[in-house]
Design a protein around this nucleic acid. Structure first.
Length: 829
DNA sequence: GGAGACTGCGTTTTT
DNA sequence: CGCAGTCTCC
């Protein structure tokens, strides 16, 4: 029987969700409503009730962190081996699938995974090889184009193109895919698309998995993109799909997430039970009421209202400062008081809309001597020295990986210059082969130096063949000269440590039970012996007994290791790791022998590692609102609530953009458990120039009764608009640098229209903050002035002071100009 | 091959 | 302003 204590902890809504019958269900899980608990308890319950065997479960998340957490919680609930379950990220699971069925997918078993940076350099190389004008077709744009296409499920030949520009993009997209295929590499979107296509085209395979996965659970459903949704629809045709999400927390539309998938799911899967989890266990009601009232301004919601039994709590504190520096200083003072009062630093978070805002706050914290941690920096596997090391490993695994080849052919420097590489590239292009294959045809000095490089890498492959993974990595670090290079470098100490850390990572990757570990799907495939046998024969899959719901969990019959060879025979591992032999576990699930190095490389690509989690010291937490999703803190400082910043100027133009910003605000507010501060500054330094910002409209959407303004409020439409003027003006930096700030600025009419700036006709805009007057000239924003040469205009920006004071004036006829106040004669009107 | 000048760019980000 | 990427010159 299912342990009561697990169900006892649930409220009625949660219990209903956990114990739903076998049918598609949509769970609307508000912030802090215990959605992870529901998901994991549901899985545990399904298994304990004998409704499904572990191998009949497919649970999908977006991040490795979420997958790990689910696995950890499940491990605590269920005394069973979790290996047979497919729990992981979309990408991790697709990786697992493609390795298992690499032949059906037309891929080498050891295919490499390109992360975004790898993909970009592959594209740059492609463009260079095809002599494409990178001004006209920037690599970054092409990258977006390709990823967007793939996320819509479109191959190049199916991609519509109506103008020459997009026709070229489509052509390049096709070339790119060809290049990837040739090199045996796969980008992130390709993992999904290829899996989807294989399932679509291969009926026995599709039917097998459709039959196998009786229960599919999806976390953060609002973040699914169109391809992921199609994938789920295909795979979950006969399954009970349990989708958990919150449309109000959909903040990733910019990378293809489609909230509409929630409504589509309800329709397409004929969802009978929509359950709303509205009980919030996190925050006091003043905070929740702010969130509720704010988000009510969005249209097209599935509709949900958070409630709590925790009482009102403190009011939300709102603070207005003159400058961003003052905002930071106030925040630091406030935090120091809290810390002095016993609040631990790690329970205090500072959130901001964009990373650029962290600088001022960091320096204030630094001055005050408060330890802090900024989230979102370089991740472990993204560090340059790690990327270099991985490139060597990739070349050892697959010498035809040209991206890897180019990355390290001359790193550490070995006298291989651009001209030598050009010769080699030419040969490779002519012969339509990899750089590695082109080397023998290269003569002269270039042939010698590059030949030596290739010999070295080939030698490494040979030398390390009998070594375990960590020793192989270590060997590579020596032979390649990477260690020596960083040892010789003055600042190389940290990089050396990171390289050592890579060896550790490799060691950790091979867990003690002899299995390659890592939940991203790099470890075994969790195919049962019978499945493997069936797959190896290319036959049907009726051998699988999974999901019959009998008492035990090992429903998949154990086929004593048979059949696995059929899958593993080709493309043997470059590194023989004795520990990797097939070991059937208690459930009879076999781990397929992916060469450990290939598995490790996949792991490195799919899980870039922690951000810089020096978790040691108790430190304040700084991060963007996006990064804060899913986290919670006792105290939250939500900073920079200014028009143009939050909502961001690039998003405020369209309703959909504005609504996503509002959801972002909603996410930010609901991070706070006990105390929430919201602040904004009248003046902020951005991109080297001072901007005059107006309080964010979102502040006006909060219920007065829940808030307490720590500073007097200056309100009024005119004041707001005067500040907004800046939004319509974009200063041209190139000109600014060459000619100083005298005659510049280009009126951005579109931005002005977007910002809904009234035509002041040169007249004064009254009521703008009096304390903002420029010290020397006595000018204020919005003031009308006359210039001898340019005529009448309005002051739209003021910078600097003393002899350096300058103002931007929007002249009625002459347009916008920056004028030095020490020189220009301006007559106030 | 590397230091230093020059140029361009600037929202959010996981896999 | 601050960073990354490219160019230039020794």
């Amino acid at each position: 029987m299912f342990p009561d204590h697990l169900l006892d902890k649930l409220n009625d809504e949660q219990l209903a969700a956990v114990t739903l019958p076998d049918e598609p269900a949509l769970i609307l899980a508000g912030a802090g409503s215990g959605k992870t608990r529901v998901l994991t308890t549901r899985i545990a319950w399904l298994i304990q009730q004998g409704r499904v065997s572990p191998s009949g479960i497919l649970a999908v998340t977006f991040t490795n962190k979420a997958a790990k957490e689910m696995l950890a919680r499940l491990g605590a609930m269920l005394p069973i081996n979790l290996r047979g379950m497919w729990i992981g990220t979309f990408h991790g699971l697709c990786n697992r699938f493609l390795r298992a069925h690499h032949r059906d997918a037309g891929l080498p078993q050891t295919f490499q995974i390109l992360d975004s940076a790898d993909q970009l350099s592959a594209i740059k190389r492609l463009l260079k090889g095809l002599n494409v004008d990178d001004q006209k077709y920037p690599a970054k744009n092409l990258q977006h184009f390709i990823n967007n296409c793939k996320e819509e499920g479109l191959r190049a030949e199916k991609t519509p193109a109506h103008d020459p520009q997009s026709r070229k993009f489509v052509e390049l997209y096709e070339e790119y895919d060809r290049q990837c295929q040739r090199e045996g590499v796969v980008d992130f979107a390709e993992l999904l698309l290829r899996s989807y296509e294989v399932l679509l085209a291969n009926e026995p395979l599709r039917e097998h998995y459709q039959r196998r996965f009786r229960h599919i659970l999806v976390d953060e459903f609002q973040d699914t993109n169109n391809l992921q949704y199609k994938w789920l629809k295909l795979l979950g045709r006969q399954a009970s799909v349990f989708a958990v999400g919150d449309d109000d927390q959909s903040i990733y539309a910019f990378r293809g997430a489609n909230v509409g998938n929630m409504a589509a799911f309800e329709r397409d899967f004929r969802v009978q039970h929509l359950i709303k989890l509205e009980q919030n266990y996190r925050s006091y009601s003043n905070i929740l009421d702010c969130a509720n009232e704010l988000i009510a301004n969005n249209g097209n919601r599935l509709g949900k209202n958070l409630r709590t039994t925790r009482g009102h709590g403190e009011p939300v504190r709102i603070y207005e400062s003159m400058t961003d520096q003052q905002e930071a200083q106030w925040l630091v003072d406030e935090a120091q008081n809290l810390i002095a009062g016993g609040k631990s630093r790690s329970e205090i978070a500072v959130l901001y809309r964009s990373n650029a805002q962290s600088r001022v706050i960091e320096s204030a914290l630094f001055k005050a001597g408060i330890p802090y941690r900024v989230y979102g920096g370089l991740r472990f596997f993204e560090r340059a020295e790690i990327k270099h090391a991985l490139a060597y490993l990739r070349l050892m695994e697959n010498p035809h990986d040209d991206t890897a080849f180019l990355r390290v052919v001359n790193f550490p420097a070995r006298g291989i210059g651009a001209r030598s590489m050009e010769q080699l590239s030419d040969i490779a292009r002519e012969r339509q082969c990899s750089l590695h294959q082109a080397v023998p045809y290269l003569s002269g000095k270039a042939g010698k130096t590059i030949g030596d490089f290739v010999t070295m890498v080939d030698g490494l492959r040979f030398e390390t063949a009998g070594l375990r993974l960590p020793e192989a990595v270590d060997q590579m670090l020596e032979t390649s000269g990477l260690r020596a290079h960083y040892r010789a470098e003055k600042e190389g100490q940290e990089r050396l440590e990171n390289l050592d850390e890579l060896v550790n990572a490799a060691a950790n990757f091979i867990s003690d039970d002899g299995m390659v570990s890592g939940i991203a799907g790099a470890k075994g495939f969790g195919l049962s012996g019978s499945e493997q046998a069936a797959l190896a024969e290319g036959a049907g899959f009726d051998a699988t007994g999974g999901g019959q719901g009998d008492a035990g969990f090992g429903a998949d019959g154990l086929a004593a290791g048979g059949g696995a060879d059929g899958l593993a025979s080709d493309g043997g591992p470059a590194i023989a790791d004795g520990a990797i032999a097939l070991v059937p576990d208690a459930d009879g699930v076999l781990d397929l022998p992916i060469p450990p190095l290939a598995a490790f490389l996949a792991h490195a690509s799919l899980e870039a590692g922690d951000n810089q989690a020096e978790a040691g010291q108790d430190a304040m937490q700084l991060m963007t609102v996006h990064a804060a999703k899913g986290l919670e803190f006792d105290v939250v400082f939500l900073t920079g609530l200014e028009e143009g910043l939050f909502p961001h100027e690039n998003a405020a133009a369209e309703t959909s953009g504005l609504e996503e910003e509002r959801r972002l605000m909603y996410v930010a507010i609901t991070r706070a458990r006990e105390r929430l501060y919201i602040s904004h500054a009248q003046t902020r330094m951005l991109h080297g120039q001072t901007r005059y910002n107006v309080r964010s409209r979102f502040l006006g959407e909060l219920p007065e009764g829940c808030c307490k303004w720590l500073t007097p409020r200056i309100s009024g439409y005119a004041a707001q608009q005067a500040g907004s003027v800046k939004a319509g003006w974009k200063r041209d930096w190139k000109e600014s640098r060459s000619t100083g700030w005298e005659e510049l600025g280009e009126y951005d009419a579109k931005a002005a229209r977007r910002a809904d700036i009234p035509d002041t006709g040169g007249g004064p805009v009254p009521g703008w903050v009096q304390k903002q007057q420029a010290s020397d000239a006595g000018l204020r924003l919005g003031q009308s002035v006359r210039h001898a040469k340019f005529g009448e205009g309005v002051v739209t920006n003021i910078e600097g002071s003393g002899s350096d004071a300058r103002a931007q004036i929007n002249f009625r006829s002459a347009g916008s100009k920056w004028l030095a106040l020490s020189v220009a004669k301006l007559e106030p009107l």
